[in-house]
Measured scan of single mutants.
Amino acid sequence: EDYYQILGVPRNASQKEIKKAYYQLAKKYHPDTNKDDPKAKEKFSQLAEAYEVLSDEVKRKQYDA
């Protein structure tokens, strides 16, 4: 799945936009606030993985290549 789609940001998003999108979605899908939703944990880990790659310039360049 596309990391940009997961975070809901365009491919040319700035680091600030990526961070903002991640924090909004992380708050929304955090397992502690969605105890009754088994998919929230999965969504949250996808968000974390996408953010880890896109927030790191080197990893992001490799991902975009």
Results as ranks from 00 to 15, higher is better:
Y63V: 03
Y3Q: 01
E52R: 09
D2G: 06
N34Y: 04
K16G: 15
S55E: 03
I18A: 00
A48L: 13
I6G: 01
D36R: 07
N34D: 07
A13W: 01
V53T: 14
L25C: 05
H30T: 06
A26T: 11
R11N: 06
K61H: 09
K59Y: 04
V9L: 08
Q5W: 13
E49W: 09
D56W: 02
N12K: 08
A48Q: 14
P31V: 08
A50S: 03
K35M: 12
Q5R: 08
I6H: 03
E52N: 12
D56N: 06
Q24T: 14
K16E: 15
K43C: 08
V9K: 01
K27S: 13
P38T: 08
K35T: 11
H30V: 05
Q62W: 11
Q24C: 12
K39E: 12
K41Y: 14
Y29A: 05
Q62H: 10
E49N: 08
H30C: 07
K20T: 14
Q15Y: 14
A26Q: 10
Y22K: 01
P38L: 09
A13M: 02
K27I: 15
V58M: 11
T33H: 12
E42P: 04
Q62E: 15
K41W: 15
Q46N: 09
P38V: 11
S45H: 11
Q62T: 06
K61I: 05
K39D: 13
E17A: 11
D2L: 05
L47W: 03
Q5P: 01
P38A: 10
S45N: 10
T33D: 08
K59E: 03
P10M: 08
E17C: 10
Y23Q: 15
K35R: 11
L54C: 02
D2F: 05
K27Y: 10
D64Q: 02
D56I: 03
E42I: 14
K39P: 05
D2E: 04
F44H: 05
S14F: 04
Y63E: 03
K28R: 12
N12R: 08
S55I: 06
L47N: 01
K41G: 10
A50Q: 00
P38Y: 07
E1T: 13
F44D: 03
K41R: 15
E52K: 10
L54Y: 00
K43S: 06
D36A: 11
H30K: 07
Y22S: 01
K61E: 09
N34Q: 08
K61G: 08
A21G: 03
E42K: 11
Y3C: 03
R60F: 01
A13H: 01
D37G: 04
Y51H: 04
Y4I: 00
Y29M: 08
K19C: 10
P31I: 06
K27P: 06
Q15A: 13
Y22T: 01
E1C: 13
E57M: 08
K59N: 04
E42D: 11
Y4G: 00
Q24R: 15
K35G: 11
A48M: 14
Q46K: 13
K59H: 04
L54W: 01
D56P: 01
Q15D: 10
K61F: 05
K16N: 14
D32F: 03
N12C: 14
I6M: 10
D2H: 05
I18K: 00
P10N: 10
K16M: 15
Q24L: 15
K35Y: 10
P10D: 10
Y29H: 07
K19H: 15
P38R: 06
H30G: 10
Q46S: 07
D37A: 04
L47E: 02
A40R: 07
Q5M: 13
Q5G: 06
K59V: 03
A65W: 07
E49F: 07
K59A: 08
Q5H: 13
D32G: 11
G8W: 04
K59R: 13
A65F: 05
Y29K: 04
E1N: 13
V53N: 03
K35N: 12
R60P: 01
Y63L: 03
Y3P: 03
R11W: 08
T33K: 11
